[in-house]
Structures are given as C-alpha cells and as structure tokens.
Design a protein around this nucleic acid. Structure first.
Lengths: 216, 216
DNA sequence: GTTAGAAATTAGGCATACCTATTCTTTTAC
DNA sequence: GTAAAAGAATAGGTATGCCTAATTTCTAAC
C-alpha cells in the first residue's frame, strides 16, 4: 500500500509528534537526513493519500489513517528489536539499524507470529512501548534523570536509540527497569553522581537528560 | 553493494543455471516476469560489475564473484524459510514469498545468528540445500518421481516452491524425507499410483515430474 | 507597516528499474 | 546461400525518491 520510504516518513513523523505538534518540515528533514525539498515533495504525496495533513509554515500532522500506518511500522520495528536481542542475542546497540530494514519486509502474518513467539512484549529493548496489533500505545510521561534531586531514585523507562550512547549506557547498567539513585548533582549544570546496582558513576548532564525515569 | 533487484537477478540466474548453462535471457526474463529489454539492461550492468558474463545470443553465466553473491542471498532466503516454518509455524506454502522480502533486509550478522538458532540447517523446508556461510553447496542429483518404475521406492529430496502445488503435496504427505513407493504407472503417459506413509494416491505425470527423489 | 530572514516552492537533474515500439543482427532451417 | 524467425539493442517513456540552485512567499521583529 505505501512504499518503504513512505513508511519511514510516517514512522518518523509519529516519533517527532511526541515533542512537536505539528512537526516542522525542517525537523522531519533533519531527522531523516534528507533535504527539505525532498521532505516537502513526499509530505505532499502523503497528504494526497490522506495519511498526513500538511500546512505550509505550520508543519505536518498524522491523520488517523497515517497514525495507524505509523504504529504498524513501529510495532514491526520494535518486535524485530526484541527478537534480535532476546532470541538472536545481538547487542542492544546493534538492533535498531537491523530492524529499520526488516520492518519494511514484514507481513502482518509474520509480525503477529513473532509477537506470539516473544510473548506479546510490551516494550522494545530500549524501553519504548510496542504498539498493540490494534494500534494502541501508552507512553508513560516520566522525568529525565537530570531532573532528579540528590537522594531521589527512579526506574529507567527508556533511552534513545543512538548506538554509541547505548554502548556506553549498557556498560553502566543503565537499561530499562534498572533502578538509579542520584547521589549528588554538581553545581552550575555540572555532572550527576548516580548509583546503579551497587556501582557509582558520574554522568554528564547531556547524557542524563536523555534518560527517562519513573520517580520512585 | 548490490541492490535488492540485482540480488534477485543473481539468485535467479543461479537457480536457472542448474537446468540451462548459460542461461538464456528469455528464460531469465520469464522467470523474473519482466520484459527481455529490462533483463538485457540489468544483465549488462551486472556484467560491468563483474558479477556475470553475458554473451549475446548465448546467455548469462555467473562469475565466481556473482555466484558468491547469489549463494549468500540464497542462504539468507532458505534460512528465513526454515525460521518461518520451524520457529514461527507458518505453512510451507507461505514462506517462500515472505523470505523473498526478508532476504534483502538481512545482514551477515543476523544471517549467521539465525543459522545458529536453527542449528545450521542443511535444507530449506522444500528440501533444497542451504549454502554454507563459506559459499559451499551440494545438490544431490536424484530422479524425478515420474521416472520410477512400478515397485520402486524413493525418498523425496525436494519439491518446487509453487504455493498451490505445495498445498496439494503437503496434504498428501509428499514432503522432503517422505518415502514414496510407486505402485502402478498407467500406460500412455498416464498417472501414477503411489503409496506415501500408509495412504495411496493418484498423481498426474506433470506433478510427479516435479518431485525429485533419491532411489531406494 | 516595512523588511530581513526563515520557510516553501519551482525548475531542472540524477539514478534505478521498469515499460512499449521499433530497428537491427544473428541463427537456423530449408 | 538465403530468408524467416528469434533474439538483441536502441529510442523514448514512466514512476519513485533523491539532489542543488534559484525564486517566491510568509512570518516576525523592529
């Protein structure tokens, strides 16, 4: 029904809508690493197909139809990520890229069998929720780790899918479900000292602000 | 390195080389369901890349480099087929189409993990050998079931990947490893009466000639 | 209200991978 | 040896999805 390219656009618009609504074309182009001219062209095609609403100088927004498509692709993506880590044993910093290709080659039938094999997982390895087959998704709000005060504790909810960052966080044990306690926060936007499963680490604010936690 | 389309060409040339060497362009075009002009164009591109040798009015042949690529794609295809039947439980008549898409979205890393998960399978669900990671493959010659004389027995080696045929053969139990005994052959190119696992069936010659067996 | 700069659009191109219609060129069969 | 038919190649076209450069349009700040 839609091309692999169009699926990528929808998936990305969906992702960006969490932070910006409607999504500016420049944001979309930047995220997809393409020119704004190309983004413009494609967005108009998607609008013609009733998958998005585009208002020049405003931005792009998914229609219900477009959102359904985006959630389908996102479901496939996250199911593959779970499969690749849990069943094939790949590192959590390797699976995003692989899933980005597999997601476009996956039928409904295969996706649902996969979900069944994995026990209907609720999140991907990075902590993001897997949309249900019916297209529902619940995203817990949470706080960034950098917002916590010394003495506060949180459970890691999710971390962004950036390979180098994941490599680093994996080594520290900062994965979804992990409990983190902020021990100290250096003044003047300084680094955080945190405790994760017995070990103590120092984290830059940039990194800490990318880690979403549920306050305990 | 090569596009999904190019991978399909190489895989198909490899398959056709088993029956015709070099492969006529018209055979290739027919198998891929494209025009001979398109096949001509692509074959010349592949030749320029050193993947095939093309001689007008003769046909196409894979170079060692092209054969290696073809075997890689074929390995991924057959590993996915095994996964889809053995792990996800899809029917053997459904997996070819799915694997045709997944094979182009699969990295070396994922293919090898998959092979490991599956226990380094030697054949796909239809009985064709899975090329090794090193690019080796052994194809047993065998006979078609239609060549057997009444009273002779054989083990099914492989059957072609045609969904409707697979549906039919699956119902009869005519799968790889199955033992078949030819009980009678009707005269004038007539049908065969065969015994498969306790049941007796009548098979047309067209069908019987597509089933490869090892003589017992 | 005007204007500078940001954002959008138009114009023109490129690569891939298809297509049909037409024109060679080579086989092969007589 | 020639001629018909089979096969190959050329010419020109389509759709997708990307690009740069140039131009137009809108927004926002003064």
């Amino acid at each position: 029904m839609v091309s692999a390219s169009a699926e990528d656009y929808l998936k990305t618009i969906y992702k960006l809508e969490e932070e910006e609504q409607p999504v500016a074309l420049s944001t979309l182009a930047g995220e997809l690493a393409i020119s704004s001219v190309s983004a413009n062209e494609m967005v108009r095609k998607l609008a013609k197909q009733g998958l998005v609403i585009y208002e020049p100088y405003k931005g792009v927004a998914l229609t219900p139809k477009g959102r359904a498509q985006a959630l389908t692709v996102t479901r496939r993506h996250r199911l593959w990520e779970r499969f690749l880590t849990d069943v094939l044993g790949l590192g959590w910093n390797q699976v995003h890229e692989e899933a980005c290709r597999l997601e476009h080659a996956t039928s409904l039938r295969v996706a649902e069998r996969l979900a069944q094999l994995l026990g209907q997982p609720e999140t991907c390895p990075h902590g993001y929720p897997v949309p249900t087959a019916g297209g529902e998704i619940v995203l817990e709000a949470g706080h960034t780790l950098s917002e916590l005060e010394p003495g506060q504790k949180g459970v890691v909810l999710h971390v962004p899918e950036e390979p180098e960052l994941l490599q680093y966080l994996g080594d520290l044990g900062l994965k979804p479900q992990a409990v983190v306690r902020v021990e100290a926060v250096a003044p003047f936007q300084g680094p955080l000292t945190v405790r994760v499963g017995g070990a103590r680490h120092t984290l830059g604010r940039r990194v800490a602000s990318k880690i979403m936690v549920r306050l305990l």
